[in-house]
């Protein structure tokens, strides 16, 4: 059982990540804030609770692997890597700039802690399968985590990879779907219906659990559950809200690929700081 104190710690970290996301995309005047904010709680739990990592030794041979298949959500990944200590937090403000190693989409050769270059949707789950197969061959206890977007499930390769993972019984792999319901052109189930999502994954041979992707306790429990699934891969379908945490960004398609304006950035930061103070009081 996870303590309330740990949950509170992770909620605070998720808020910090959200502030970084707003600031990074606001300063860069580009990037994808909506799908980064929706994934902030999941990423916070993975990087600050679940995964075995050594930020001082990014290539540590015992580390777990995280692959951001929805590669456009770099702000949340970079925020987590910086907060974890893979590189200085100050570098975040140069996100997407020519002088920076923080590319618009993840580049494993440029950024410490980035395991795979992604950004073209659909490829990350296959890559994660490859890593999981290698770990199986090596009889390694290391695990692989892959974060998939809901719109990304429209890519055929996701389903090729879904077949591969179940065929090779990759129970050392946990996939998480950030089901925020919106893609760049509109609601996912209007653009091209992905439902029934859970049934699809089950039909492809996966164990499925559906959770509230903003409930830290549920995220932790689901990740623990996935680790206990044997002989099959496991997927967590995390219902989330695009733009979560900033009231005027929540549920807005616009903020998929449009950054907050300077004024919006200031407002959003104010709101997140207010929330931070409230959390402090909860802790007392």
């Amino acid at each position: 059982m996870v303590s309330d104190k740990e949950i509170l710690r992770l909620r605070k970290i998720a808020l910090k990540l959200r502030k970084h996301i707003v600031r990074m995309t606001g300063l860069a005047k580009s990037g994808h804030p909506g799908g980064s904010l929706s994934a902030a709680d999941i990423v916070a739990v993975l990087f600050f609770h679940k995964m075995r990592l050594d930020p001082k030794n990014p290539r540590w041979a015992g580390r777990d692997i995280f692959i951001l298949s929805k590669g456009h959500a770099t702000p949340v990944l970079y925020a987590a890597l910086a907060e974890a200590g893979f590189f200085p937090v100050e570098e975040l403000r140069d996100f997407r700039k020519l002088s920076s190693h923080l590319q618009g989409h993840p580049d494993r050769l440029m950024t410490p802690g980035v395991e795979m270059s992604t950004g073209s949707l659909g490829q990350g789950l296959s890559v994660a399968n490859g890593v999981a197969l290698a770990f199986k061959l090596d009889r390694s206890p290391r695990r692989v985590y892959v974060l998939i977007g809901d719109g990304e499930m429209q890519e055929g390769q996701i389903w090729e990879a879904a077949m591969t993972a179940s065929h090779y019984a990759l129970d050392n792999l946990t996939a998480i779907v950030d089901y925020n319901g919106l893609q760049i052109d509109g609601p996912v189930n209007e653009i091209k219906r992905v439902e029934p999502v859970a049934d699809k994954w089950r039909a492809f041979g996966w164990e499925v659990r559906e959770i509230d992707g903003h409930n830290i306790r549920q995220i932790i429990q689901a990740l623990d559950w996935a680790e206990g699934v044997k002989g099959k891969p496991a997927v967590i379908i995390a219902k989330t809200i695009k733009g979560k945490g900033v009231s005027f960004m929540e549920g807005k398609v616009k903020f998929h690929g449009v950054p907050p304006s300077h004024q919006e950035m200031e407002e959003a930061l104010k709101e997140l700081e207010k929330r931070e103070k409230e959390l402090e009081n909860e802790g007392i």
Binding site: I65, R108, E115, M116, G122, Q123, G124, S126, V127, A128, N129, G130, V131, A132, L133, A134, F135, L137, D138, G156, Q157, E160, A161, M163, T164, H167, Y168
Partner: peptide, 27 residues
Amino acid sequence: ERFFNMGVSEQDMMSTAAGLALAGKRP
């Protein structure tokens, strides 16, 4: 043990091979 038939899924095969390479294999 070291052979993976990926079925008729060439795209999946290429990305899977990349994953195996990241984890230190020589695909």
